[in-house]
Amino acid sequence: MESVSLRPYARLPRAHAGREILHSTVDAFGRAHWLLAEPGRAEVYDALVVSVDDGQAQETHLSAVTARFPLLDALPEGGFVVADARRRGDADHVQVFDALGRVSWSFAVGDAIEHLLADESGDLWVGYFDEGVFGDDPLSVPGLRKWSVTGEPLWELPLSTAGGCMADCYALNADRSTAWAYYYTDFPLVRIGGDGTARVWESPVGGAKAIAVSDGGAAFFGGYGRDGDRLVVCTLAERTAAPYLHTTLVRPDGSPIGPRRVVGRGPRIHVQAAPYTAWEVWDLGESG
């Protein structure tokens, strides 16, 4: 089976090699960001966000970060959101920083965050893993929620969704005002429109870790065990995602990906292989 190669996308400048990479992402506008701190950070610490856009790097210093297991994303008007994946008791565990790196808001969105994606309007899409869905924090129970950047709950996945109840959000894609989710146990592909309505397709694979969507098509990347680098490209029919290509995604040099982070944004699947200093990308819209 012929493989498909990622292409280089963005790289952390070498000047920051001595810092610990706490998290990294690609935002709604295609900018890559790294959250960095000095090794041995305290419970409350200062951090540095390095943003790379079209090869140009910019630094933002964040003051008094509290997240132990941080997830980062950028906001459209400048500034950043940092969430702790695990919430301690009833603590506020999401911090919103302004463009100067100062905390402007803090609030809670629930325990066991798997995905945190800001869309182009600045609203936050949050997907939870199973310890949140079945845990003691009621904010996490729906499995997928949308929040305002000031912590106002805007939407949650209804129990009546045709794809069934969510036990674990495996993949999330936020593009413009639309979000796409893929989750355990039945692994449906669910599109949530700007008005909050959900449309569901049956997917052909289980265990994928990222999804891409474009012009009536969808792609599923990842899987269990030996399917970790699997890429399945589909046409979206009335009720099903019908596969027409099964292949393997590889690094630009043809090597296996290995440990990675993944972010789905519209038609793109962004992949960051260990040691997490560079993002690479595959684009469904360019797949022919």
Score class of each variant (00 low, 15 high):
F80A: 07
E202C: 01
S160G: 06
G207L: 12
L124K: 06
Y244W: 14
T66E: 06
A241P: 01
D227I: 00
R102F: 06
A42H: 12
V96D: 04
A67F: 10
V65M: 10
A210Y: 14
Q95V: 07
V65R: 02
A212R: 14
E202L: 08
H33Q: 14
T25A: 13
L36V: 09
G228I: 10
V82W: 13
F29T: 10
G143C: 04
G78Y: 14
F134A: 09
Y170A: 03
R88N: 05
W279C: 01
D73C: 01
T247N: 09
G285N: 12
Y276R: 02
L245N: 08
D168M: 05
I269Q: 06
H270T: 00
L72T: 06
H23C: 11
P153C: 14
I192D: 15
E286R: 15
I192R: 14
P259M: 01
A241H: 03
V233I: 08
G285E: 12
T197N: 06
V141N: 03
Y244G: 08
L116P: 00
R199S: 09
V81Q: 07
A174M: 10
A91I: 06
E280F: 09
P138N: 02
A237C: 07
A108I: 02
D227K: 04
G79H: 12
S5C: 11
T161V: 15
P188D: 01
G135P: 13
Y9R: 09
G266V: 01
Y45I: 07
G285T: 08
A47G: 11
L144T: 04
T150D: 07
L159M: 08
W282S: 07
V82I: 14
G193Y: 11
M166T: 13
G264R: 14
A219E: 05
V233C: 08
S214D: 14
S3T: 13
G228N: 08
R239C: 00
P76Y: 15
P275R: 04
Y128V: 03
A67T: 01
E43F: 05
A241K: 05
G266A: 12
V271C: 13
E59V: 02
G18D: 15
Q95H: 04
L189R: 06
R261A: 11
R145V: 11
S51T: 15
S24A: 15
D175K: 00
V81A: 06
W279Y: 09
Q272R: 07
T25Q: 15
Y9L: 11
R176D: 15
A67Q: 11
A273E: 08
V149M: 06
R268M: 10
H270G: 07
A219G: 11
G40T: 10
G225Q: 14
R265P: 01
L12N: 02
R14Q: 12
